[in-house]
């Protein structure tokens, strides 16, 4: 539990809160981008450098850009919801109880600190090759499906 982890974790938590708490939808999209980049830095801290690179490429580079495109198409502002102190009190008590029970877990205190891309690639392409191909087909089906949903020529007005 050192200083870098505390700073990055605080940035991630505040970005996640600000995704829902800002009035302008585009700003909440940008806070989502900050959240994803801070999660990628945490992956680097855990010696998972391939996952960090893939996260920046795919999440920030493709998914976030798509979300920002759709926000710019259908932008909407929204008022911040009212604050109810009783709800905040009850939810914070539940969160403190769960965190207390998590801290009682007896986990290993060391992590495997070597960069893992060779082991990951050898296990992925030898033992788990079938799920790899199946997931590639799944994303192909997703692309074709999303094209097919949005390809209607005229939309009957409500």
């Amino acid at each position: 539990m050192d200083l870098i982890f505390l700073v990055i974790a605080t940035i991630a938590t505040l970005s996640a809160i600000m995704v829902f708490a800002s009035k302008i939808t585009f700003k909440s999209g940008l806070f989502l981008g900050a959240f994803m980049i801070s999660i990628a830095i945490l992956y680097l801290k855990l010696f998972a450098e391939f996952i960090a690179g893939v996260q920046i490429l795919i999440y920030v580079g493709a998914i976030l850009v798509l979300i920002l495109f759709v926000i710019m198409l259908v932008g909407k502002e929204e008022r911040i919801l009212t604050i109810n102190p009783l709800r905040i009190f009850l939810v914070s008590i539940m969160i403190i109880l769960v965190i207390y029970s998590i801290l009682k877990l007896k986990l290993k205190t060391y992590i495997i600190n070597k960069y893992s891309i060779e082991e990951l690639s050898s296990v992925l392409f030898e033992k788990y090759y079938l799920p790899f191909e199946v997931v590639a087909l799944a994303i192909l089906a997703g692309i074709i499906g999303s094209l097919f949903i949005a390809m209607v020529k005229e939309v009957k007005e409500k």
Binding site: V54, V70, L124, V135, G142
Partner: peptide, 22 residues
């Protein structure tokens, strides 16, 4: 880590379909 790669890919497909629905 391998499972996280699969989570990433499935999340990309789901985000694309969700955005077209929106």
């Amino acid at each position: 880590e391998i499972f996280v790669l699969f989570i990433l890919i499935v999340a990309a497909a789901e985000a694309a379909i969700g955005l077209s629905i929106i």
